[in-house]
């Protein structure tokens, strides 16, 4: 890069906001960032309007970090706009990369979700049972709100993504490292994931041994041995099938990995791979016994696709077409 300051944008689509917080978590490093970059768009921190972005020239932003999945027409519109305005677009966080926890919504139809949110929860007070519509009439005026989509999408379903930095949220160090790399102009091939190619097991210090499980347990059912692999102790750990980078944060505190950094390099369906690996730890030559043990994993789809349903081969639950 020349001595010109980097023009940075950050945006929050369908997500929890954690990724934005993770950016703030880089702490004093933000000062270094300020030295080399100007932030031109960051709705969570500063007041910007849509028209400000629309007014930018195409490719005006050097880098844009976009977090959150695509859940409604607004997400999509802004994503497309930012794509046009950015030289490099980074999908930040697992929602933007793979759909994230938000993507679990793909187990339900939009109607089911709206029904629940606006009618069925205990705290809902909606006597007329109104469900917001993209276009409605209020006091004689037409009111437009974004349209909720049928499903949750990942960012690259709609726009080209240059780099992926998954994590729920990505660790602050990883974000800082990514910014460093951008500043130094040392980015890998476009399309890459800005993380090591290995998996969580590689970073996890626990001792792996048996690889044979005769009872699957839920985390609350035992206090796991701190030294031994959690999977060997019967906990469903997604570590084997999850991209490294977190430093085995969960297993370090005695909790199994839930897969938030997404699939390993080149893997098409993280959930299927994880499931296959976990299932075979219960192999025995007694089919009935095996069935019993494996059925102890109660919610396989929810477990193995917790962070990546929209990125999976089927993308979500298959719904019968309405006649």
């Amino acid at each position: 890069m020349s001595d010109k300051k980097l023009k940075l944008g950050l945006y929050w689509a369908a997500g929890c906001g954690g990724c934005d917080v993770a950016v703030l978590d880089i702490d004093e490093k933000i000062l270094d960032v300020a030295e080399v970059a100007d932030i031109h768009f960051w709705p969570i921190a500063m007041d910007f309007k849509y028209k400000d972005v629309a007014a930018m020239d195409d490719g005006f932003l050097d880098v844009c970090f976009l977090n959150g999945a695509i859940r409604n027409s607004e997400n999509k519109e802004v994503a497309e706009l930012l794509r046009a305005k950015s030289k490099v677009l980074v999908a930040l966080g697992t929602c933007a990369c793979y759909g994230g926890v938000i993507g679990l919504a793909n187990f339900c139809t939009r109607e089911e979700i709206l029904e629940t949110a606006f009618k069925k929860t205990v705290s809902t007070d909606n006597p007329e049972g109104i469900i917001p519509q993209p276009v409605s009439e209020v006091d004689g005026c037409e009111l437009h709100i974004p349209e909720v989509y049928e499903a949750v999408y990942k960012l690259d379903d709609f726009v080209n993504v240059d780099y992926y930095l998954p994590g729920c949220p990505p660790r602050a160090e990883l974000i800082a490292k990514a910014i460093d790399a951008i500043v130094a102009g040392q980015l890998p091939e476009p399309g890459s994931v800005l993380l090591p190619a290995k998996t969580v097991c590689d970073e996890c210090k626990r001792e792996k041994k048996d690889r044979h499980v005769d009872e699957f347990k839920r985390p609350w059912e035992l206090i796991p041995d701190e030294e031994k692999c959690l999977l060997d102790q019967g906990l469903v750990c997604m570590g084997p099938a999850t991209r490294a980078g977190c430093g085995a944060a969960c297993t370090n505190v005695n909790m199994p990995c839930r897969g938030c950094y997404g699939p390993a390099e080149g893997v098409i369906d993280q959930g299927a791979k994880a499931m296959s690996a976990v299932a075979v730890t219960a192999v025995s030559t007694n089919l009935a016994e095996m069935e019993k043990v494996i059925s102890q994993v109660k919610d396989p789809a929810g477990t193995f696709y917790m962070y990546g349903l929209p990125n999976s081969l089927l993308r979500g639950r298959q719904m019968k077409e309405a006649k």
Binding site: M275, A279, M290, E291, I294, S295, P300, A301, L314
Partner: peptide
């Protein structure tokens, strides 16, 4: 037998999907 193990879990998963 290994395929059987996967099958048991896959069946539940497919149903959920």
């Amino acid at each position: 037998y290994k395929m059987w193990a996967r099958k048991v879990m896959l069946e539940t998963m497919l149903q959920q999907l």
